[in-house]
């Protein structure tokens, strides 16, 4: 792939990774927040051995989505406040390439947080989250809500009080991800036969594709003045 499109996506992703590698402010804040949220849920829901299996996948996904809110907001605020979003818009790069570049960066950061949470929660609660299917579910789900999160964060940075508005905008819209991902993860963790939970994973994948296509089509309207 040597098209200008792929080159632009790659340039944006590696720019974000490099800047993040230097400051580490995004991933560390997200990871810490996710850990705290897992801890808070443990206390609040009194996650004992029985409650565990039912609640654990919900705790995982809600923590991930909350942490990602923090990250998406920061990632797009950085672009917006330094005016570099304008600089991106000035270049002859396709708007979809800008979207994909920002999406891949956000996706990688959130996935990194998930990769911290999965083994940790496995160790803390004695639930088997380190399963290749659980991992696949995590990857697909994180990708899906990173797509809509990237678009809505771009939208929210253009509003007043964006820190408050991004969660309000994102939470209802990413409910389809939460519903399907939680049920798939729950099924996988509880050791139920694949036939019982695979429909949720399939639904999750379908929703991810629907949202991705919509985001690719609509992102330029979120950017254009």
């Amino acid at each position: 792939m040597k098209s200008p499109f792929a080159a632009a996506v790659r340039a944006i992703v590696s720019k974000d990774l490099r800047a993040e590698w230097r400051s580490r402010e995004l991933v560390s804040a997200m990871a810490l927040f996710a850990l705290l949220s897992v801890l808070v849920f443990s206390f609040a829901l009194e996650l004992d051995k029985n409650a565990r299996e039912e609640a654990i996948s919900g705790v995982l996904w809600v923590s991930l989505i909350f942490a990602s809110l923090l990250g998406f907001n920061r990632s797009l605020s950085l672009e917006h406040d330094q005016g570099s979003l304008d600089a991106l818009l000035l270049t002859p790069v396709s708007r979809s390439a800008i979207f994909l570049g920002k999406l891949l960066g956000n996706f990688m950061f959130t996935l990194l947080v998930a990769l911290v949470l999965l083994p940790l929660m496995t160790a803390l609660y004695g639930v088997q989250l380190l399963d290749s299917w659980a991992l696949l579910t995590t990857i697909v789900g994180v990708f899906g809500f990173s797509a809509i999160g990237t678009l809505l964060a771009t939208l929210a940075v253009q509003t007043r009080s964006r820190e408050a508005l991004l969660p309000i905008a994102l939470l209802p819209v990413c409910l389809p991800f939460l519903l399907t991902a939680v049920r798939a993860t729950k099924g996988i963790v509880s050791g139920a036969p694949q036939s019982e939970w695979q429909v949720w994973l399939q639904l999750l994948a379908a929703i991810t594709i629907i949202y991705l296509v919509l985001c690719l089509l609509l992102y330029r309207f979120v950017l254009e003045e």
């Binding site: 080159a7 632009a8 790659r10 340039a11 944006i12 720019k15 490099r18 800047a19 993040e20 230097r22 400051s23 330094q82 005016g83 570099s84 304008d86 600089a87 991106l88 000035l90 270049t91 002859p92 790069v93």
Partner: peptide, 18 residues
Amino acid sequence: LLYENLTARENLDFFAAL
């Protein structure tokens, strides 16, 4: 319209790619 966490050289290389 620059990236604060990149060096001068990296900023120019980034925009050159775009």
